[in-house]
Computed example of a mutant assay.
Amino acid sequence: MTSIPHTTPSSSGARAEGPSLHAYDVGLLILRLVLGLTVAAHGAQKLFGWFGGGGLEGFGQFFTMSGYPSGETMALIAGLSEVLGGLGLVLGLLTPLAGAAVLGTMINALAVKWGGGFFAPTGVEYELLLSAGAAGLALTGPGRFAVDRFLPGLRTHRLGYGVAALVLAAVIAALVLLIRN
């Protein structure tokens, strides 16, 4: 596949060559696939007990021990947010909202694990990386290889959509944290 170089004007007025638009799109696709599938699998652990997960009952107990009311309900909400948000990122479908779903869940995960250091097994580097990736995708959009390109109003990503989605994620995550003991 050949690509047309992307050029941008430099401060001197000359056109400088940069990465092709296809390179950005392929990079965003790889990021979406890896991040989205990782988060969706993480959610499937909560919902279905797949991949060695505890299912709703096991994760419900964890949520209860972590100070959340109605542990199984919270596990269901977190699991659905991760599965649907992750699959949304994979497909590039409603990408700002998919990124926000992942970010909101990860904000709560960071709050629960905070104080355990940075590195695994008790640290927050995994949750922080997922948070940053989801926020980045919400802000940049999915690239050209995405379902959003076929939806009216989402064909061209706007930074405002991403910012609004991330604000929504932060507000909802804060509200959930307020009900935590």
Score class of each variant (00 low, 15 high):
residue 75 A to E: 10
residue 52 G to C: 02
residue 4 I to Q: 10
residue 24 Y to E: 11
residue 8 T to R: 15
residue 12 S to I: 06
residue 33 L to V: 14
residue 41 A to H: 02
residue 7 T to I: 11
residue 21 L to D: 07
residue 51 F to V: 04
residue 21 L to H: 03
residue 70 S to V: 09
residue 27 G to H: 06
residue 42 H to E: 03
residue 65 M to W: 03
residue 66 S to D: 11
residue 49 G to Y: 00
residue 35 L to Y: 11
residue 47 L to F: 01
residue 23 A to C: 01
residue 31 L to M: 07
residue 58 G to E: 07
residue 60 G to L: 03
residue 65 M to R: 08
residue 49 G to E: 04
residue 12 S to W: 00
residue 71 G to F: 05
residue 74 M to S: 07
residue 16 A to I: 13
residue 36 G to M: 08
residue 9 P to D: 11
residue 36 G to R: 13
residue 61 Q to K: 00
residue 70 S to H: 05
residue 21 L to A: 11
residue 32 R to E: 10
residue 46 K to F: 00
residue 75 A to Y: 02
residue 19 P to G: 08
residue 48 F to L: 15
residue 10 S to V: 09
residue 55 G to K: 05
residue 14 A to L: 12
residue 8 T to V: 14
residue 34 V to F: 09
residue 29 L to V: 15
residue 22 H to P: 00
residue 78 A to G: 08
residue 51 F to M: 02
residue 26 V to E: 07
residue 68 Y to G: 13
residue 71 G to T: 15
residue 72 E to K: 12
residue 69 P to Y: 12
residue 39 V to L: 07
residue 44 A to P: 02
residue 64 T to G: 09
residue 71 G to V: 07
residue 61 Q to P: 07
residue 26 V to G: 09
residue 71 G to L: 10
residue 44 A to F: 04
residue 58 G to M: 05
